[in-house]
Amino acid sequence: MHLTLEFGGGLELLLENSTKVHKVEVPPQDGENMVTMKGLLSWVKANLIKERPEMFVKGDSVRPGVLALINDCDWELCGGLDAELEEKDVVVFISTLHGG
């Protein structure tokens, strides 16, 4: 599934070359036929995060203080971890845990 992922608020520093926008192809997790946020998070952790994964995830969810938006919509309104993603969705992750 084609997804566009954006990382901000310092999360980009955990990725290769601190790239903010990633156009990626994410396969469904084993035994499922769609990509959920839960699946996406573990995919991101395994494939994109280069250092300090604890700054991004905690347990199987994002670290508290990291906001997630699916097509500009608060992921808490979309079903949170169970939200099912669709082709060409844009998912934004922003950390609020920084100076300012």
């Binding site: 699916i70 097509n71 919509c73 309104l77 979309c78 079903g79 949170g80 169970d82 939200a83 099912e84 669709e86």
Partner: peptide, 8 residues
């Protein structure tokens, strides 16, 4: 059953 974005 979690609903997709925008249904509310």
């Amino acid at each position: 059953p979690p609903s997709r974005a925008g249904s509310r």
